[in-house]
Design a binder for these strands. Structure first.
Length: 239
DNA sequence: CTTACGAAAGGCTGCGTTAT
DNA sequence: ATAACGCAGCCTTTCGTAAG
């Protein structure tokens, strides 16, 4: 395996000079830099990640925490995964996917062992146990969704409250006085699924503000029977 | 002042030595 | 024979310093 020592030898400089060429943390003469880069190219040198880690350098790995359950729509989530990987690569980062059943323990192990520089949380719940761990673990966290139990971490999401309000406004403007919202499976609400709850609440609140009758039903996503369900519930609603 | 070098440090592994 | 311990080596980064 080619190491920094081999590059230094080939370029006729010291090991530290090679290190500074790649980190750019100290000024070096252009000729020296060129010699080192040429030697590294010639020897196909890749810095040893283990040694960099040992010295406390950045790992350039991000953890993507996404607990995959029975109701997880993999076709949608795989897009999140790919887009995260593609964007991370733009900044020179790789992505480690944590998708196990014991999410908190996995996250703790990965962060505490110093394997990653930061964590991205998917499938964020209203009271998210992973978000609650963020401060204790002392590692940057970004949540896709707004965990209400830790508002100090960075959060990114669609504005579902605005979306719900706008949807009700549009229907109201068309003269509708009864609205039925077909949501996700009931278990998603029970577990505290972040955006489902926020969207349903926003719809319900805005309907109440406008004096519109609001009803909501849960369906099995992709189950195929929601139309029949909708029909019976609608009758019940009207009654 | 600029440039480059030497040495220490970091955590883990495996080998060699000593103690039981 | 086995257990426990100490130490060197792994590779890279970075601080302090010397040379020009």
């Amino acid at each position: 395996m080619v190491g920094i020592k081999d590059v230094a030898e080939r370029a006729g400089v010291s090991i530290s000079t090679v290190s500074y060429v790649f980190s750019g943390k100290r000024p070096l003469k252009e000729g020296t830099r060129d010699k080192v880069i040429a030697a590294a190219k010639e020897l196909q040198y890749t810095p040893n990640a283990g040694a960099q880690l040992l010295r406390g350098a950045r790992r350039h790995i991000l953890a993507l925490s996404s607990p995959i359950g029975r109701s997880t729509l993999l076709s949608i989530y795989s897009r999140f995964f790919f887009e995260t990987v593609i964007r991370a690569r733009k900044y020179g980062y790789d992505v480690l996917l944590l998708a196990g059943q014991h999410e908190e323990k996995e996250l703790e192990r990965v962060v505490e062992s110093g394997l990653v520089d930061g964590v991205i949380l998917l499938e964020v719940e209203i009271n998210d146990t992973r978000a609650a761990m963020a401060e204790r673990l002392g590692c940057p966290f970004v949540a896709i969704g707004y965990p209400e139990n830790n508002e100090s971490i960075y959060s990114v999401d669609i504005d579902f409250v605005q979306m719900g309000c706008r949807a009700v406004d549009i229907l109201a403007a068309k003269g509708h006085r009864e609205i039925l919202y077909i949501g996700t499976v009931e278990s998603e609400y029970r577990r505290g699924a972040n955006f489902h709850i926020r969207l349903r609440k926003a719809l319900s609140d805005q309907a109440a503000r406008r004096g519109i009758i609001f009803g909501a039903i849960a369906v099995f996503v992709g189950g195929g029977s929601w139309l029949g369900c909708w029909g019976s519930k609608r009758r019940a609603l009207s009654g």
